[in-house]
Design a protein around this nucleic acid. Structure first.
Lengths: 212, 212
DNA sequence: TGGGTGGTGTGATAAATATCACAATTTAAT
DNA sequence: ATTAAATTGTGATATTTATCACACCACCCA
């Protein structure tokens, strides 16, 4: 299990009692890069708090299409699984481990209990929802108003923020995340290379565009 | 001002003290159909709880494009304005009165105070965020995966749920809400008419498609 | 009653993206 | 080293949506 100091580093705004209750009742789980942590339609039985690694949240179409929404990092919670007051909630989204990860799984019963006991848990839940709500707003803005070239740039920048200037993704993987085809991404990346925005390698490229 | 009974009807899950505090500190405001209640980039100084009428939440592009997200009805709160703990938050979205409306404006200072005093306010805020988060998920699903014909059907159904089977909107208004052009909507509606899904009139049409 | 005005219909064309086909290249495996 | 698999490049074509141009029609109103 985690030490209370580790918990405090990850979640600095909590109350003392909350740390103790988390240590007592949450389960520390691990998953490997590539594992699906949350399927569409799956019943939610515990909340997920990221301890280590990165999780990707995305939507899935009936025909297998995907659309990337945002990443979850250590110290963040999966809003979808914070189903206070709602039992038997079904997930509308997918969560996949991008790296090897560790996370705390909190049974829904305790999530509700803590709402009554810990103010800091309340704030944490609200803060989580608010920040994810804002991520979704950005996603809608992109997909509703922008063409693929701009959406690709937006996507790459998120990858760069997350993992650094070397983006280790194949064209196909990017195309999946943006619900388009590999050819489209290949052509747009080639154009970015001509413009001097990226330096391409096999299975990866570097983002070298100077901002403004 | 409202009576405490009206408040209880609108927000049945609150504590007694919360009703009283709302009556004391919230301002009951009115607005006419068509009025913009929240502009993009506007500083949020009070939360909006709908008492009467319907509010439309949508996003705006830099080039004037729009995209409809969801409606707010009596008993619901605008998630964007529930900026607990965050001061000087800027709105990323627009809110417009679709009908004449009445709403309660709650100063941010009280919103935070109530988080400490009333459990039911906490639940209300969390519930609000959760339901709006889910609306945004649906919106992303439509705009990321569906063609305009399906998005139009999805849109019309939301209008029907809100205002009944007679949709009183011009093709241009629908086109604005879906960030497309009037011609596209006209042609798709014509197709729906041929398929027997709608009966068209001037400035309005009836949704007559039988479900499944 | 005869213009406006706003709403709708529709063809022609352009632009963005999707899809198909296949070549070329790099890496991994034997 | 040689083959197989994965990745990328690229032309051709189809589909979807956007844009332009203009006709037509209903309704208000001076």
């Amino acid at each position: 299990m985690l030490s209370i100091e580790q918990l405090k580093n990850l979640f600095p705004d909590w109350e003392q009692g909350l740390y103790e209750s988390v240590l007592e009742h949450a389960e520390l789980k691990e998953a490997n890069a590539g594992e699906i942590l949350l399927k569409k339609g799956q019943n939610i039985k515990s909340a997920m708090l990221v301890v280590e690694g990165t999780i990707k949240l995305y939507q899935e179409d009936e025909d297998g299409g995907e659309y990337f929404m945002y990443h979850l990092n250590p110290g963040e919670a999966c809003a979808v699984t914070l189903v206070c007051n709602y039992h038997h909630e079904q997930s509308q989204v997918l969560a996949k481990a991008i790296t090897d990860i560790k996370f705390l799984a909190i049974p829904v019963t305790y999530m509700e209990k803590w709402l009554n006991e810990f103010k800091s848990w309340h704030y944490f839940v609200i803060k989580t929802y608010r920040s994810r709500y804002e991520e979704l707003l950005k996603t809608i803005h992109e997909v509703a108003f922008k063409n693929m070239d701009e959406r690709l740039e937006f996507y790459i920048k998120k990858q760069v923020d997350q993992f650094g200037v070397t983006v280790k993704l194949t064209h196909q993987e990017i195309a999946n995340d943006l619900n388009t085809s590999r050819e489209v991404i290949s052509r747009l990346l080639k154009k970015m290379e001509h413009n001097g925005w990226i330096k391409m390698n096999r299975n990866a490229f570097d983002w070298i565009k100077k901002q403004n």
